[in-house]
Design a protein around this nucleic acid. Structure first.
Lengths: 174, 174
DNA sequence: TCTTATTTTCAGATAGTTCTGAAAGTTTGA
DNA sequence: TCAAACTTTCAGAACTATCTGAAAATAAGA
């Protein structure tokens, strides 16, 4: 029975890992990284590099690079078992924490550099007081303000505990 | 004077187009598409294919493909000028409308398929009542609920007028 | 210090994406 | 119905991202 049950969920898990990897592409995250994350997120115990290589049929270099990358995001952490030399990895499993980590990282990668560009362009055309030049300046300014505003909302939400975020959202939706 | 002024803002615009294109990559949008969008967003008048090809130094095929793609997103629209045969394009310039369009599209591309996977995995392991199988089921369920919740929030916000969204956000931030 | 287990790096290979340019298709007006 | 103006398509080229595998680096115990 235990064996059968185990087989059932492991099958589902394999599918999850495979599909999540495919989805990674849509998300701008590379397939292997997404697969490793899915694998660790559903791992009952921390795993080490060779296990991961074996499960996903990937090379050592690939596994290592993407494990580093995931650590960099803060989505997985290194675990050392006493008496053992090799490094194990485990994923953050709390959905809200995961969300906050991803939101922050995306903000840093997507919004911050965009804001710099907008600020620069708005600044350079501050003197435009008529015609197309003014319109351009206005557009840059509007975009800049919108992005800044979005960042503030995102920071506020990211600073919340799960419970109070729920609270807040229920009010919004109700 | 007019010529000088024009030169100034056009320089800034060129930079905006170039940089926005580079940013597109981070955003999972291809460079050309982002550049065309930036160009049209800052165009005083609708533009046609050959103008765009010339400004961005891209081929006809490339221009055409990406113009179609942008129309598909709803970020630009086709304009016909009476008495003229060729098609002109103009971009949606309202920041809030742009945001809603992008949010909807990203939801469709990123969230909808993810939700399907999660539902499938949660469904398949509904019978798991103990041990690792149950944990897996719980994890899928949690993720599913979180994504559904996020979608609801996103729908609600997307349904708002700019003014009431601001209203709401000020309350959140204040 | 030496040996062995483990991790990291990176040049070249592979796979995936985007772009070009020319040919085919479409529309319009004479 | 024809020709000109314009748009679409798509095979192959160019470019980019990712992966492999083996060698180099590192760390720990004997």
């Amino acid at each position: 029975m235990t064996a059968e049950t185990a087989k059932t969920w492991e099958t589902s898990r394999e599918e999850f890992v495979a599909q999540w990897g495919a989805l990674g592409s849509n998300w701008g995250i590379n397939r292997t990284m997404a697969q490793i994350h899915a694998l660790l997120m559903t791992a009952p115990e921390p795993m080490y590099t060779d296990e991961i290589m074996l499960r996903l049929h990937i090379s050592r270099g690939n596994a290592n690079t993407n494990l580093r990358e995931l650590s960099g995001w803060g989505l997985i952490r290194l675990v050392v078992k006493k008496g053992e030399r090799r490094e194990y990895f485990e994923a953050e499993k709390d959905v809200w924490k995961m969300f906050i980590i991803i939101a922050k990282e995306r903000k840093r990668r997507e919004l911050d550099p965009a804001l710099d560009v907008l600020k620069g362009c708005a600044e350079q055309t501050r003197g435009e007081t008529a015609g197309a030049g003014r319109d351009f300046h206005r557009q840059m300014k509007e975009l800049q303000e919108f992005v800044e505003f979005g960042m503030k909302v995102s920071d506020t939400v990211a600073g919340m505990k799960h419970a109070s975020a729920l609270q807040w959202a229920i009010k919004l939706l109700g």
